[in-house]
Design a protein around this nucleic acid. Structure first.
Lengths: 344, 344
DNA sequence: CTGAAAGCGCTTACAG
DNA sequence: CTGAAAGCGCTTACAG
């Protein structure tokens, strides 16, 4: 492809540099640097001359060069599952606000729940020399990050723990939340309760399943294996799972759904039925209170997850060097109606 | 703040460089560069020696240095209003996918609808020398971007046009969409229709208001000024506006809400009322079909907005140099019930 | 108060 | 097939 064929191709060489500013202002390079960075020790008159040259030339400092020299990039990377998932909106926003307060930019990417894609993205961010990383893991083996962490890339995992390395983690207490949600259904008279969750390799999915089993066991209830379904959040898969649990001679009378994507699909599936089925979902979601019945949920605070992870990261970047630790944030049961329906 | 007080402070000098790899492999710097970049003309044996050295040292190329030399950063900036707004989730995701297909990373920031914050963010991205920018404007004056665009930063505005500069823009057809939505209410017998919109300085707000007025005028209907309310999407403000239009001796019988934030708040306000009020909202939103009544909307395709803007940007980056243009994407009326209610 | 020199870690342009 | 030199645009460490 001939590059010469098209019109004025952008060229970075086109941009004025500090050297150009210095020449025009009739001062040394270092003086321009002082003015640009607001360092003291420059006469008012010199400052003015430099400023005039900057304006005349339309100079803007090239931070790529600055970064190379200074070591720090003042940017952090955020890798999560899917930018479009409403759960990650408030989380991202909270990370962004914290980064902003620290003067850092945010580089963002989605792993799409693909371990290889997570790895590529994370390593690309390391090559850009982000100061730190916040990662919602898709992979279950993060040993590939060891050299990066050793080289100084501060790393905090959020929503799920990393695999096979020690690092800071910020989680919601999925086990306790799920156990309480299922116990709530049991308290309302249910004995046959289904569990529909996410892929079994996702930590939150197995933790929530563990919570389900713990609640059932604590109440002395048997769990039929047909009542448990783990898999992708694809609506077809989830609807089939729900239909199967609700069919047959001894159908479940209540469902526990392990994340917001699953809950929304199950709400749609239940909408077409006459016999009421009780439902408690993990994760709150917009308009849950306006559905009929309104949906009882185990809410986690996505913004707080993000804020806590970012605070941890920037504390590390400020030089705090304690051992890596896990923070587990509490969940909250919000009873709205669907979880208080009696068994049919 | 003494820097010496804390434990092993990360130092970039710590990282191995190409020079270190070259020394260890017993080759020249340029040979390492060739291997790292997969350039041809290196013996298999030399490649192996270099690879071994890379692995032994845990070398990862510093892209900051590369960027400085090459000019291109292989990153683009995306500035929007609020990362946590569900409308921008699919848009961001679409931009990300396109960027990924072109090997570029995404630097993301929210303007929070603050013109000054937009400007700071955009200029910070320019200083990082992003190759291009996709911006949902909060400001109504983008002349500050002129020197950057002249210096070669490809720029595409999305969702709203820029102020006082010529540039590529990708929009939904807000005027036509709103006009059709209001005409739909009129077709179902309504004569007194309220309009609740966003801040008047936001282009989409005024375009949608224009659509409302056009539909009313086309039907020969008077518009009482008490039926129009523009302002922030703060729920208190929106609820008060709705209450006021629904009070008095000649209340409105239908409402047109000009974006998803406003619609959701109005749905809550109407939920507490006995007399049915018809509603059409601009923007589709999750679960709109499951509410009672299900909400009729003018849907825009947020993912397509993002994809179109990103395609345009990368075409520019590939050297296409046509005049800046505006793309207007169609909207789609989805009738679900709330917009088909007859006047009370 | 001011500036010349060296260097951050790569790639480019060239020579062998 | 391989490498030494120069340079990208800044900041650092120093000297005056």
């Amino acid at each position: 492809m001939a590059d010469t064929s098209r019109a004025p191709r952008r060229r970075y060489g086109t941009r004025p540099t500090m050297k150009d500013v210095a020449a025009r202002a009739g001062v040394g390079l270092k003086t321009v640097s002082r003015v640009v960075n607001g360092e003291p020790g420059v006469t008012d008159d010199t400052v003015r001359r430099v400023r005039d040259a900057i304006d005349a030339l339309g100079f803007r400092r090239n931070d790529s060069a600055r970064v190379l020299r200074k070591g720090r990039t003042a940017s952090i990377g955020l890798v999560l599952e899917d930018l479009a998932d409403p759960f990650y909106g408030p989380l991202s926003r909270a990370v962004e606000e914290t980064a902003r307060a620290h003067g850092a930019l945010l580089i963002h990417g989605s792993s799409a729940e693909d371990p290889e894609r997570e790895r590529e993205l994370v390593l690309a961010l390391c090559a850009r020399r982000v100061d730190g990383l916040i990662v919602v893991p898709a992979s279950d083996d993060h040993r590939y990050l060891e050299p990066e962490i050793a080289a100084g890339v501060a790393t905090v995992f959020v929503d799920r723990p990393p695999g096979r390395i020690e690092a800071d983690v910020v989680l919601s207490d999925s086990f306790t939340g799920a156990r309480e949600g299922v116990a709530h259904l049991i308290a309302h008279g249910h004995r046959r309760i289904g569990f529909i969750g996410d892929l079994p390799r996702i930590h939150t999915a197995t933790e929530r399943l563990r919570g389900y089993r713990a609640a059932m066991a604590a109440a002395g209830l048997e769990t039929d294996e047909g009542w448990v379904s783990l898999g992708s959040t694809d609506p077809g898969r989830v609807r089939a799972a729900a239909r199967s649990m609700l069919a047959g001679p001894a159908p479940v009378t209540a469902l526990f759904t392990a994340n917001n994507r699953v809950t929304v699909t199950v709400v749609r599936e239940l909408g077409g039925r006459t016999r009421p089925v009780a439902l408690v979902g993990f994760d709150d979601f917009e308009l849950a209170d306006l559905l009929d019945p309104a949906v009882t949920v185990i809410a986690q605070d996505a913004a707080r997850l993000g804020r806590t992870a970012a605070d941890r990261l920037f504390r590390r970047l400020d030089g705090v060097n304690t051992a890596p630790g896990t923070t587990r944030l509490p969940t909250r049961l919000i009873a709205r109606g669907s979880g208080e329906l009696p068994p049919a």
